[in-house]
Design a protein around this nucleic acid. Sequence first.
DNA 1: CAGACCCTTCGACGGCGGTCGAATCGTCCC
DNA 2: GGGACGATTCGACCGCCGTCGAAGGGTCTG
Lengths: 216, 216
Amino acid sequence: MDGDADIAAVGALLAEPARASVLLALADGRSLAASMLAAEAGVAASTASHHLARLVDAGLVRVESRGRHRYFSLAGPQVGELIEAVARVAPPKPVTSLREGTRAHAVRYARSCYDHLAGRLGIAVADALCDDDFAITAAGARRLHAIGVDVRTGDHARACRDWTEQRDHIAGPLGTELLSALVQHGWLRRDARTRAVRVTEAGAAELPRRLHVELP
Amino acid sequence: MDGDADIAAVGALLAEPARASVLLALADGRSLAASMLAAEAGVAASTASHHLARLVDAGLVRVESRGRHRYFSLAGPQVGELIEAVARVAPPKPVTSLREGTRAHAVRYARSCYDHLAGRLGIAVADALCDDDFAITAAGARRLHAIGVDVRTGDHARACRDWTEQRDHIAGPLGTELLSALVQHGWLRRDARTRAVRVTEAGAAELPRRLHVELP
DNA sequence: CAGACCCTTCGACGGCGGTCGAATCGTCCC
DNA sequence: GGGACGATTCGACCGCCGTCGAAGGGTCTG
């Protein structure tokens, strides 16, 4: 067997409530700053920093410096699966209800990340509007104008990595404006309680037609 | 999300090397006595007892009293999957090789448990020879005699529960004698390094014919 | 260039939990 | 029934790790 796997080390990482909170906060694929995670876990910034360093050391969490912020996210799908496996065992209520299953699926399909669009849908939108350097294409800018989003050809969209898909999606101010526009047109609807985003019937028709988005 | 899952509690369970060793020892579905697990973990019997009580309390491990022994096993497939998920993250070597995959499959199909037969094959053998009360049927006793195993009709075989299949298989002295007889006839072959058991070509032909075992 | 902000490092404090040996209870074997 | 054996409970000791505040680098803003 694989008796050489140091499973206790991973357990110790999960054992501390503060670290567990951090991992749960990141479990849906978000990329959060250290101060956010400190607040989420209810500990001082120094404590959170200490924990985050350990999680990064262990390879469970990835960190990316962006200006004076440092954004943390899960290191890969395996880590997400780990958390799911733990959560499935954690409560005495072993029933992973069907509703939760579909909800998790919805979250994986499309979700908001801060205030922009992520998940497979977010990537599809980025593919439709940006070139390989994440600059807005001429056609993309034209189509965005048509739906009321002001952007110039060649502008570089801020990229935000999505660990569930290992791809980038559009973040930053443009991402914010884009998501709110799509919601305003009635093409997307944000779930009130989770970060899931659903494509409406109108959206299923208009997103491919108006923005050339290939719905996944 | 399911933010109410106490993932830290599960982590604390895995965090202690002694408990981790116990879980790894049970990971292949075996049912082991407390003293065995104490030796496996390298701690005193009292310490092991303490840990096992906690694991049972948390619902990760199931215990079954049999005489003056108490046999521990994983509480269900979910726990096995948990351990697999943790082990997958634990080492920096993330490659779950194909070889391990097939080996795990072999172990699930048929394996030895102490010195008797377990896994799906073990259950198939039990089905062929025992009635619902785990007593040897007349036909079963006749066929066992024919291959040199001495047993009387109506004798109760000792049952041993298999968490991967949620069924019982034949343990005890009869289980021991049976496995060694099957190996001696060249119908089964035990892997030297793991607990996997393989059905030989002769076994594939003779087990159904001589013992009326329906090979799974 | 000064100030605010984000994050990390450092040192000291405090508490929880693992560990063992001895004693006890229950079961099996002669 | 006596003795051996397996397992658990109890009490005491010890060590590790999370926690915080203060201080120090690094970065953006006016």
